[in-house]
Amino acid sequence: MQELAIETSDLTRHFGRVVAVNQLSLHVPTGSIYGFLGPNGAGKTTTIRMLLGLIRPSDGIVCLLGAPLTRTNRSQLAHVGALVETPSLYPHLTGYENLQVTQRLLDSPHAQIQRALEIVQLAGDAQRCIRQYSLGMRQRLGLALALLREPSLLILDEPSNGLDPAGIRDMRALIQRLATTLHITVFLSSHLLSEVEQIATHVGIINHGQLLFEGTLPDLRQHQTDCVCVVVDQPQVALGILTEAGWQAEITSDIAYGHNVVHVTLHEPAVVAAINALLVQHGLAVYELRREQPSLEDIFLQLTGDHSPERNAA
């Protein structure tokens, strides 16, 4: 088995003058649940369309399950299930018939339909018309459609889009189940880190078409330096002392302490005690000293924050 289920190198796509995806090199390990994250318009859907051969890259290559995907070589798609944006369903057909359309096209065994319906827990509603399906049911049927091929790789574009909190939780549990019990590699996009944080083993963060980070979740945490919040009686004095000592510090406010908080960015964890000693030496009253780990959400926001030159120039 190859190590990478998806590998792209320098994948680029222009739409006229807009660069939707810019030299993207993704590495999705086999067996992982890979969260592909980015804010709206980051280029997630465009990337996924290229991964599936729906649109051609302007540049770069896509390797799926170890083989390059080209217009003539698409045989790997037999092992890839996909759900791009909203599920593609025929509203005048029943849930069962919708699956049957694809099953006939693929000439896969009939039993696959029932199996897929059971996985997404729609067997009971299979004889109802799609018109009567709720958004959540449609989304699950879309997933069933992707499972018809018994895929070893699932590519899902915002599978929880439009679902209520319970629906999101169910979808997450379902994806987790697919990965663990059926050993499917899952590549899923989202614009919320919190949505994938609980299940993803790997994340890739994209903004303005560029990959900002790729790695495991612990890697992502490491990516960010910790900081120390010091609550003192004379913040201005403390700021002066700490800056002089060579630390990166700023005054921030806090609901409980108002403007008495000094925020110090830590470059190495050992210095917390030194900070305390220094402030006390100068006769300041230190009320509180706490180490803060930024939440993943903060890291995400910081990474995708509007500091990239592309958007500012545009």
Partner: peptide
């Protein structure tokens, strides 16, 4: 229209079936 309305192409064309057959 059956295909355009539900945006079926993005599903059908990800299947391992040549597009021309469809």
């Amino acid at each position: 229209a059956t295909e355009h309305a539900g945006q079926q192409w993005k599903h059908l064309f990800t299947l391992p079936v040549p597009r021309w057959t469809i």
